[in-house]
Every structure is written in structure tokens, then in C-alpha cells.
Nucleic acid binder design. Sequence first.
DNA 1: CTACGCTTTTGCAGCGCTGCAAAAGACAGC
DNA 2: GCTGTCTTTTGCAGCGCTGCAAAAGCGTAG
Lengths: 344, 344
Amino acid sequence: MRREVTLRDVAELAGVSSRTVSNVVNGYANVTERTRERVQRAVDELGYRPNVLARNLAQGRSGQIAVVVPYLDTPYFSELLQSVIRAARARGYNVLIDQTDGDPEHERAFIAHGSRRLLFDGVIFSPLGLDQQALADRDPALPLVVLGERTSDGGFDHVGIDDVTASRQATDHLLDLGRQRIAAIGDQPYATGEAAQRRTRGFRLAHQARGLVPREDLIISTPRFNRPDGAQAMAHLLDLAEPPDAVFCYSDLVALGAIRTIVSRGLRVPEDVAVIGYDDIEDGAYSNPTVTTISPDKEMIATTAVDRLLLRIASDTPPPGLEMRAPHKLIIRESTAGRTTATA
Amino acid sequence: MRREVTLRDVAELAGVSSRTVSNVVNGYANVTERTRERVQRAVDELGYRPNVLARNLAQGRSGQIAVVVPYLDTPYFSELLQSVIRAARARGYNVLIDQTDGDPEHERAFIAHGSRRLLFDGVIFSPLGLDQQALADRDPALPLVVLGERTSDGGFDHVGIDDVTASRQATDHLLDLGRQRIAAIGDQPYATGEAAQRRTRGFRLAHQARGLVPREDLIISTPRFNRPDGAQAMAHLLDLAEPPDAVFCYSDLVALGAIRTIVSRGLRVPEDVAVIGYDDIEDGAYSNPTVTTISPDKEMIATTAVDRLLLRIASDTPPPGLEMRAPHKLIIRESTAGRTTATA
DNA sequence: CTACGCTTTTGCAGCGCTGCAAAAGACAGC
DNA sequence: GCTGTCTTTTGCAGCGCTGCAAAAGCGTAG
């Protein structure tokens, strides 16, 4: 195999020092037009390409950021990831993706002190829940931005939407429809993270604001936020003596699973049970029925996270941890509003 | 910021040469137990972690493979990716993900000669279509495995399922149901890749084997394989004087979009129109109705691709390009078989 | 006691690049 | 012509590791 072209080769051909070639390649300022041209010609002629590895080693940075998500095949994450990759790429960074399969041990290892040093300059972390142990072990020098979960630890940034308000709006929407027995699927009272708990809080607040008290047996916990969980939880709810007439699901996948169960029992959505989801994944816009949902601004979450992480990477003295809220909105579709198309 | 611990630091503490520390860290053979222990103690005490960048530079490899997909938020790709990442991780490789947004220029750049040298040791490439220009420009020294698309170029491997047979099975299934006017959505007669064309071939073959001729106006081309495309194509089909009573969709997303259109017009699936998809994404198992589909063995595709790529990376003389077939099966669900649950 | 073959350890060079500081040039003013 | 200032170019060291080959250690045999 032919040896690759190096800076030195170019330098020799152009009759300048290798440092000057480096300057040209990197577009540094003080190079005369004459020199630049000569070097450029040599670069072109030899087909020189910088060796990223060597550059990284010399600079002590990798030009890569890691994005850690629990599951890649969850549409919410893959949609978010898509935006993150785009944002990072636009800023000259590559994205290394890691899925933890929801294993807290794996999540921990990722932000632990000294983990895989220098393979990435920083981490965007979307944990299932924020493990306290993980936070304790975390490398304070590792630039970190956390998505979704919140915490009091000040050493990193957090980007997410206002879950409590969003959940309250979702519940309000169901109450506005005149529903009497509203269930919630997705609580995780014992989880380390508190995203689920914030949604439950919003759910309760919406009731309280109208002087209502949610029935505790209608608040269902699920291990994850996927279709099977939703399907199963809904089956349980429909088996109750007094089944719900509306359900607030903590993710669109849960909602899709729940709808599946409702329909397969011969009941109608939303006539018999209205369903609302969370995340606004594409599936929900094309399902039968389409799913009313809370839509977080994923593009905004992604770019904010990337920008903030790069800032953190670039600064010598780590900036204080910031709490950042991306906007969200309620998107009303058939699963609560019914079929709008005439033909039905 | 404290300087990081290096091999040399460990060597000093352990009273050996840095090369010996390297040997211990990498688990090389000829190290006495005594030495190994002493070094290990020093490693632990200082909390030494190898600098991956330096190792890579010295070894001339990056320990990373790139996976190039058109769209990350397409469930088929994200499900596949999940398996690829897992397989690569198990073999000590990291995965760098790149999405091309379907831009052929971008796809080309990725496998082009000298592209981003050394950031990755090889590429698993899942192109929209195999651009001839891209193949011509491709770096022959870059280990490459292509998913889905086939070609006669012998310089790399190909992993996929037998599209023609699978498509024929799908069509047969619809014919077996007694459907008279079967449409196909997803042909791409002018695309550079031929995956879509192979599916159309299978579609035709199934007809021919029964002495039938498919109606040409029922074979619909789409730019991509997503929900909107499916929805739109189906709308067109339903507007025909003689609309189809069954549809073979070239992806589950297309099928979901098509079903959406059918249902929103007040027609029933499968009673009025039977629908079959392709890819077996999770969505199709929880939609209303659930979607009959061709299920490629994604796990097998992923591990085969990774194994083959690593083999290619490891070998000095590139092995000949191989054509590899992963198994697939037909999974029959409600969109062709109707509701099996009693209650409906 | 020396020679020999084997295992274990070492030293050095170098992967290809950039940071730093010094050297060389260019130009103006006295 | 000389000095001082500013711009451009250079040389060197070193990022932290591994490949290679030589050196050292070690046990056995002659």
C-alpha cells in the first residue's frame, strides 16, 4: 500500500517548511498570497489530505462529540439525533453515537471519570433517569449537556421543555373535552430520573386547578415508554370496573400502544376513550387515528444542546450549569378531536 | 487543568519502562506475573487510562467504523443501526454515524478517494441508490460494505435479502387472497439504485407465474419510501376509475401512509383494500390495523456486515467482493388477514 | 565457567500534526 | 546605513502511544 501524502511531502514540493503548509491548510492569517498559491498547487498536485488523527493528538482534542441515548430505535431519539448530527456537522464536529440499552451501568461508565478519554470532547447525554451514583462518579472535567432530566448539580447544562406545564396543558385539553375519568400512563415513582414524575405533577395540577382529584388507580406506572408498555397498561385500565374515558400517555409510543389495545377491544378513539401522547413523533401523524400530542421543539433542543456543549468545550473555566427550556406546543389530532375528514 | 496521567508516569511509579506498561495494558503475552502486578498496581493508583488518540496514531488505525445512512429517523435504518452499533461495540469498534439526507453528493464524498482519512477504518454504506459516479470515485483502499443495493463492482461486499423472491412472496400472498387488482407503490424506474426495481420485478414475476399481467397504471413510483409518499400515492390510486383492491408497498412506512389514506376515505383495510409492507418495523406491529410485511433479518444483516467489514479491514490483500443474502420471512398481520381478535 | 537458546524488558524512533518562540524579511524613519 | 517595528516563515519539540530490534536476564548444557 502506498504511503499517504504528508505535510512534509507537500512542503518539499512547494519548497517551504511544513509549518507553512500547515498554516495554509488551516487558513491562518499571515501567509502571503504568493506562498499560499504555491502551497495550494502542491497540495492539489499530491492530493494531500490532513491526517485527522495526528491533528487531534497534537491539538489534544478529537473533534467529536458523543451522544448517549438509551435506545436508538425509539423514534423520539432518532428524530432528535438527526437534528443533533446536523447541528454538530455544521459546526465541524462529528458525532459518535452510543446507545446504552437503558443500562444504568453503561450510562454511568460514559460520563465516569476518565472514561475513554479523548475519543470525544464532550457528551450530550439523554439518560433514562439521572442516576445519582453516575452523577457522583462523573468526570467534572468532561463537558456535559443533559437532555430531558433535571437536577440540582451545577456542573453541567440541561436542555428540555417545561414538562409540568406541558403535561398540565395536555390534561387540561382532556378535561376541556368533558372527560370524567382521565388516566395517566407512564409514571415512574421509583425511577431515579424525574421526567416522568414531573409529568404526573402536571397531570395532578390540572385536576387540582378545577377542584378535582385524579383517581389514583388510574395512574399507571410503566418500566419504559414504548408500545408494548402502553398496550399492556391500557389493557389493565380497560379491565377496571370503571374504565377511563381518556388517557394521558407520557410518550406517543405509549399512546400508540394504548390505542391499539382500545381498538382491538372494539372500542372507539376518541369516542369511547380519548388519547393524548407526548413527543410528536412522525408515527403519530399518520396513525389511525392520528395522535394528539405535546410537541417539543426538537430542532431547538438539538441546536441549543450542541451550541452549549461546544461553548463548554471551548471555555477554559467551565461556565455554570444552565437550565434551558425549549418551547413546546399542543397539537390536536384525531385521537382527541375525532375524525375531521367528512367521509367517515 | 491537571495534566493527564500517561504511560510514562505509570512506568516511573512502577519502576519499569513505559514499553512494559504498554505491554501490560494491552495484555501482551511475555510479561512475568510479578511485573504485571506491579504495573497494574501503579495503573490503579494513578487511575491511568490510555489515550486512544495517541494509540490510534501510532497504530495507524482509528478503531472506528462509519455507518452512512440516508435518514436516521427512518425506523428501518434506526433499527438496523441499533444492531450494527451493538455488533461493532462487541468487537471493540466505535460507530460514527453519518446521515446524508439522501444527498448523492454527500454519499459520494463519503466513499470518495481520500475522504476524511483515518477517522474511520471502514464504512458500512446504505445508499439510497448506488450512484455510478460515486462508485467510480470511490477509494479502492477503503474497506466498504454496502447494504441493500447490489452492483457488479467487485471491490466491496454487499449484504441484503433476496428482494425479488421476497417481493414475489408478498405479491403471491395478495393473489392467494383472491385480489384482482393489485397495485405496487414504490417503484423507482429512474433511480440509480436497483432495490426498488428488484421489488417490481418480483411483483411482475408473481403475476406472470399465474398467467396474469399487472396493470401498469397500478405501479406507482415514489421519490422516497416514507409515509407522505405512501399517503399521496394511495390517494392517486383511489381516484382511479377502477381502484385497486390490494397494494404491495415497498416499505412499511409507505404502507402506513397508504393505510392512513384508505381509512380516512372511509374504506376498510383489508376488506376494501388489502395492504402489505416491507421491512417489518415496530410501528407496523402496533398500528391499526397491524401491517402484514416482509421481515428481513436485521440482526443478521448487521452482524454479517460488521464481521465482513472487520475482516476486510484486517486483511492486507482485500478479499473479493461478496454477495451475501440474509434470510427474510413473510409476517401476516391484520392489513391482509383482517382482525383476528373476536370483539371487533 | 562459558556458551547457547529462550523469555522478558528496554530504548529509540516515529506516527503526522501543531504550539511556541525564534529567525528572517520587509519597511519606515532618522 | 542603522535601528526598530511589524509581518512572514522556520525549526524544534512534543502530543502519548506502539513497532522494531537490540539488550538484558535466566536457565540449561557442555
